[in-house]
Design a binder for these strands. Structure first.
Length: 260
DNA sequence: AGCCAGGACCACC
DNA sequence: GGTGGTCATGGC
């Protein structure tokens, strides 16, 4: 397989699921999946995977996405051009749906470091996030998830009990899938968009968190979530998720914590 | 020390 | 259908 063009560090440490699931050491990224250790490394802008794991890497890094073409399409203004220039090579990732759901159930009103610790505390011996069945009967109190614990328990119970079907979500269009995911306790619009973007590969999803809120307000003059939705869909449409990832990175680097 | 965090939920308007 | 208060706890 041909190597994948990417800035691996930006990709793996950009607040996407790999940020919570993979370990970095000496510039290499690794994790255990099904008992196997998978390792990724970057050589001159190209990513190489450990032997036998090329296919997994290609899927994770969405190797079919042509970044140059995407950049050309979403370069609508100076702000996003600056983000693309600064974070060139950052790719969206395609992750396991359940792992993505668990990670972003932990994410609300939290921070990247804490989310990572929470997710790491819910891994099984095979290195993967505990299944819904296992999670439903695991005591999570030592993880100090706060008010998120009942969300995780409730969602795990629904999935384990067959009350919620991820396979069914896959067949729905974006708007319906977004509504359906919000049937899960602890899943609102933002988390639903994260699950759709990082777990289901729906590139039109645009997770609107506090940083994106600041970015959209400061750089595009739109504030309310509804107006942001409309603006984003009109401007970036089917590639809104890529625009979001780059604006999120730029916002965290350029906007101070104190809102003006 | 005190404010903030990749928000969701509920009551109330 | 929109808005404000509340939620548990770690980071910085």
């Amino acid at each position: 397989m041909e190597k994948i063009f990417a800035n691996l560090k930006l990709t793996m440490e950009s607040g996407q699921p790999p940020h919570f699931l993979w370990h970095q050491k000496d510039g290499r990224y690794s994790r255990k999946i099904g008992g196997q250790l998978i390792t990724l490394r970057e050589e001159g802008g190209r990513v190489r995977a450990s032997a036998g794991h090329e296919k997994h890497a290609a899927e994770l890094l969405r190797s079919c996405d042509d970044l140059q073409e995407i950049y050309a399409t979403i370069s609508t203004d100076a702000t996003i051009k600056r983000a693309i220039s600064r974070y060139s090579g950052m790719r969206l990732t395609k992750n396991d749906e359940w792992e993505t759901t668990v990670a972003f159930l932990c994410s609300q009103n939290s921070n990247l470091k804490r989310i990572r610790a929470n997710v790491q505390g819910m891994l099984g011996n095979d290195g993967m996030v505990l299944s819904a069945q296992a999670l439903a009967k695991t005591n999570l109190r030592k993880l100090n998830l706060g008010y998120r614990e009942p969300y995780l328990k409730g969602t795990a119970a629904m999935v384990a009990g067959g009350e919620f079907d991820f396979a069914g979500v896959k067949k729905l269009n974006y708007a319906d899938a977004r509504e359906e995911l919000q049937e899960l306790p602890g899943v609102g619009p933002k988390v639903a968009d994260c699950i759709l973007l990082y777990g289901f590969g729906r590139l039109e999803a645009f997770p609107n968190d506090v940083w994106i809120g600041r970015a959209m307000s400061k750089w595009y003059g739109v504030s309310s979530p509804k107006k942001v939705e409309a603006f984003v869909q009109r401007r970036w449409g089917p590639l809104a998720g890529y625009a979001q990832q780059y604006l999120f990175a730029l916002a965290r680097d350029e906007i101070s914590r104190q809102r003006p």
